[in-house]
Nucleic acid binder design. Sequence first.
DNA 1: ACCTGAACACCGTTCAAGT
DNA 2: ACCTGAACACCGTTCAAGT
Lengths: 189, 189
Amino acid sequence: MRADARRNYDRLLAEADVAFREHGTDTSLEAVARRAGVAVGTLYGHFPNRRALVSALLRERNEALFAFGERLLAGVDAGRALREWISAVVDHATTYRGLAALLADGIDDAASELHASCARMADIGDRVLAAAREAGVVRREVTGTDVLAVMNAVAWTREHASTEQADRLLAFTVDGMVTRRLPGRVSAT
Amino acid sequence: MRADARRNYDRLLAEADVAFREHGTDTSLEAVARRAGVAVGTLYGHFPNRRALVSALLRERNEALFAFGERLLAGVDAGRALREWISAVVDHATTYRGLAALLADGIDDAASELHASCARMADIGDRVLAAAREAGVVRREVTGTDVLAVMNAVAWTREHASTEQADRLLAFTVDGMVTRRLPGRVSAT
DNA sequence: ACCTGAACACCGTTCAAGT
DNA sequence: ACCTGAACACCGTTCAAGT
């Protein structure tokens, strides 16, 4: 990669991060290019579409998330691992407004640049869930896609209501998935 | 209202319904006007913005929903009433793709054309919830906004995953909100 | 090998001019 | 009282022409 290309690539990523943080993933790509001091064509040269840009921005963050998941799997408390995994993914899906929708759609669309990381997330989720099931802490009918569905729904609720409200929703749902329940109190997440 | 104005108004509503059903609430208003055989300015004359158009389309549907809610309140089984109310609102919020987001945002935005109907929905929800609480079938910490949050989250999940998946999510969440639980089975909704 | 920027097709919204 | 359609400002995406 040529030195100037590298510089443009980095600038585009940096400005995209700022814009996504501020206006969500639906922000204008033209504006991103403008703020990066680059022609639109340059942006499209590096990132064929919006998802590719999002995907590139999430790269390191994804690695950290997956590593965290593996660490949870190596731990002992399967019930706690499930809760913490869900929380971690929700946090991740909340990085930019609009990201929850991209991720939810990415899992079903093999052509999406986000598909690989979605699949990886699903895989870790399956294993965390399997461990929790084996430990007898989740109901047997809970599936991996159930877990994905809660995570996305809760992330979306953070965008459209509040973090607090989303966490309450999460608490009730996890409680409905869990085998035992503390009497009279929503279980902590 | 002049006769031609009335005709344009009706045509716009009809075409908007078709377009919203097909492409969601984010569809092009220019295209709606075009298909209605009317200039864009005419559309804006009748409906100052997208929400006003959605709101007008939902009018009768809203009335039916509210009437159903009142009927539920007059019934006897408070637990069943809560479940049915949630289901009914989820169905309603699923009329057009993108509607769940509009409704979720509408409750907090007093200036939104959808705010009044959102408030009405919230009010009925509060009363249904109060009855369920009095009957001892829901946990005491469940709030009216918790109920709103589930409904919106589940409606959104219908858009981005599937009706089946959304209904599973709903079942788990309601189960987490409910006082008693059938052993080993997700309760029906 | 990469960048530029004009080109095309589309959109939301407003408003002077018409009837 | 209502409608028209041009006008303005914006956007996504492509691609011939440059370096």
